[in-house]
Each structure stands twice: as structure tokens, then as C-alpha cells.
């Protein structure tokens, strides 16, 4: 057995060495979202005169914060090979339920803050339990059903009316600024940090990655697969409830039509952020970049002499690029694996 060409000490069991050129290609593919975002920002700064103003950036970031909050939970679900299209309807349902349950000028505004994620949690648990315990292996269909139910429930609870006015704390969360930074953005960053710690630093997080990587092996090895998947949907619902909080604060109203179509932006943010639809891969941090890419495209085009109808076309194109990068990543990984095997045979 010879590993001389790898410059590796043979008598040191359990230790190998890193990669070279293919490794760099792989790293670049993984850094894709950051590179795309940086490129977009540079282009818009150069060609759109009003893009780089404090007011515009604040606006852009606050707008992206809602998509990012949704995307964070969506990421966890996609991580375990699922998908949740009901997150947009959670925005509507949570705003309406909170508004009706607490009244607009309720002094217990603290309760409102808790109630938003709680509504989301209930919807998320409903999704997770249906998929796992109800043994319906098509999360898309299940959550489409939930989307309908939650939208309908929002209309029923509100009687179809939009109620204006939210408590001061909710308004602050959606519209306030701390040292120039939108509170909503800080809020989402906190949420992001929390999820990052959960996913990367705790046992539960590693198990979520494991279940996404290979659900069968996870079960064979005795990991609590069902509970892990249910928890992913619960987390997704909860973050959607937070998005509802930010949405209500930003618009100052509870509308049964709030958040319509936001689920697509959330899923797009996750995919552009480089998470694999095959599960088990990606970093929750990249959801932030995914959400910002969507925000920058939409916002940047507004500042150009271009029809805003181009925004979905641009975002769609970027989704395709992201998917192709995922394919390319797989190809590079296969090459690395083949080379490893060849080295061993050498």
C-alpha cells in the first residue's frame, strides 16, 4: 500500500489530508450565494444612483427580513427532505388570530409577541404530525392542504376584514430602528443565530442533518427520526409566526390576505442559499444571503429604468443557476471520491 504521492505519513492512523484543486472548486461552489450577492450589490451600486442610500437600504433590509424569517424555518424542513408551502398562510393566520384575540389597544402587548410564534407552532406541529404520524409521505401535498385550511381560517376568524392597528411592541419590531438598523433585521439575525447554534452545535441539530442525509440509516441507528421530522416542521411554523409578527408590525394591520405568495420567496431564498433539495446539505446562514439576493434584485430593478416585471424573471434565472450549481457540486464530489479510490488502489 502506498500513499507516497499524497505526502501523508502512513503510520498515523485516522489522519488524512485536505484537498487541492477540486477542493477549491467545491469551496467556490459552496460560497456561491455570497459571491452572487456581492456581484449584484456591486452592479446596482454602479448603475442605480439611488440604490446606496440609507433609506433605501433600510427598506431593502426590512423587506428581506420577513422573507428571511420564513426562509430560516423553511431551511430546516428542506434539510430533512421536506417542504412547507403553508408558511405564507401562517403570516395571515397569525396576524388575524393575534388581532382578534388580544384586541388592538390591548395593554398586554407582550402577549401578542408570544402569540404570533405560538400560532405558527400549532400549524407547524399539525403539518409534522400529519406527515409523520398520518403517514402521508408527500409534504408538498400536505402543506398545500394546510395552506388552504390556514387561509380559510384566517378569513373566517377575521370575517374577511383587515383590522388596522397593532400594539406598540409589534409596531416597533416591524418598523423600529436601533442605531439606524431596522429592528426586524436584528430580530431575524437573532433568530438566525439561534438556529445556527441549534443546527451546528447541538446533538439535535446534527441529527437533523443526519436524517436529511439518509433517513433510513438514521432509523437503523436508532435516531428518533419521526420526532426529528416533526420538530423540523414545528420550527418552520414557529419562524413563520415570527415572520407574521414582523409583517403585522411593518404594515400595522392584520389582514387575512397578508403574506400571500410569500412561501415561494421563502423556498427560493433557501434554494438560492445553496441548500440541496435532496436534503442534508447547506447552511442556515446562507438563507440570509438567499433572502437578500431576492430583495436586492427586486429593489435594484425599481431604481433602474426597467419594468419591475423583470424581477421574477431574474429571480427564476437565479434559481436555475443555483440548482445547476448543486448539480455541479455533486459532480465535483464524485470526482473527488473516484480520485480517493484510485489513490487507495495505487
Amino acid at each position: 500500500m502506498s500513499f507516497k504521492d499524497t505526502g501523508l505519513s502512513e503510520d498515523k492512523p485516522g489522519v488524512g489530508r485536505g484537498f487541492d484543486r477540486l477542493g477549491i472548486v467545491l469551496w467556490t461552489l459552496q460560497a456561491g450565494p455570497v459571491i452572487v450577492l456581492a456581484a449584484l450589490v456591486i452592479v446596482f451600486v454602479l448603475i442605480a444612483p439611488n440604490f446606496l442610500t440609507t433609506r433605501n437600504l433600510q427598506n431593502l433590509i426590512a423587506q428581506s427580513a420577513i422573507v428571511c424569517a420564513l426562509g430560516l424555518g423553511e431551511f430546516v424542513v428542506i434539510l430533512v427532505r421536506g417542504v412547507d408551502v403553508s408558511v405564507g398562510s401562517v403570516i395571515a393566520l397569525s396576524t388575524v388570530v393575534v388581532s382578534v384575540a388580544t384586541g388592538i389597544d390591548d395593554p398586554s402587548s407582550g402577549a401578542q409577541i408570544v402569540l404570533f410564534p405560538l400560532v405558527g407552532l400549532v400549524v407547524g406541529l399539525f403539518n409534522g404530525l400529519l406527515i409523520v404520524k398520518g403517514r402521508i409521505p408527500q409534504p408538498l401535498v400536505v402543506t398545500v392542504a394546510t395552506l388552504g385550511i390556514a387561509n380559510g381560517a384566517a378569513l373566517l376568524v377575521s370575517g374577511g376584514d383587515t383590522r388596522t392597528g397593532m400594539s406598540a411592541v409589534v409596531n416597533w419590531a416591524g418598523n423600529g430602528h436601533v442605531a439606524g438598523a431596522p429592528v426586524s433585521a436584528l430580530f431575524v439575525l437573532g433568530l438566525l443565530g439561534l438556529l445556527w447554534v441549534l443546527l451546528r452545535k447541538t446533538q439535535w441539530g446534527r441529527w437533523l442533518y443526519a436524517v436529511g442525509g439518509n433517513p433510513d440509516v438514521a432509523q437503523w441507528l436508532g435516531l428518533p427520526r419521526d420526532r426529528l421530522i416533526i420538530s423540523a416542521y414545528a420550527i418552520c411554523g414557529t419562524t413563520a409566526g415570527f415572520a407574521g409578527l414582523l409583517y403585522a408590525g411593518r404594515t400595522g394591520a392584520a389582514s387575512p390576505l397578508a403574506g400571500l405568495g410569500y412561501e415561494l420567496d421563502a423556498i427560493t431564498a433557501v434554494i438560492i442559499g445553496g441548500a440541496s433539495l435532496f436534503g442534508g446539505r447547506g447552511s442556515v446562514v446562507n438563507v440570509l444571503f438567499g433572502a437578500l439576493i431576492i430583495g436586492v434584485i427586486g429593489n435594484g430593478l425599481q431604481h433602474l429604468d426597467v419594468s419591475s416585471f423583470w424581477a421574477p424573471v431574474a429571480i427564476g434565472s437565479i434559481i436555475i443557476v443555483a440548482l445547476e450549481m448543486d448539480v455541479a457540486r455533486k459532480w465535483v464530489e464524485t470526482r473527488i471520491r473516484v480520485r480517493q479510490a484510485r489513490r487507495q488502489q495505487a
Binding site: 500513499f3 485516522g14 485536505g18 473527488i336 487507495q344
Partner: peptide, 15 residues
């Protein structure tokens, strides 16, 4: 005596 397997390497990249 398992050799040449780095602990921090992603296993999907291995033979």
C-alpha cells in the same frame, strides 16, 4: 489501524 481517514473529512467525498 484504519489509515488515511481524516476525522474532519466529509465521508461523501471518500472511497
Amino acid at each position: 489501524t484504519v489509515k488515511n481517514v481524516s476525522p474532519q473529512q466529509e465521508i461523501g467525498l471518500m472511497s
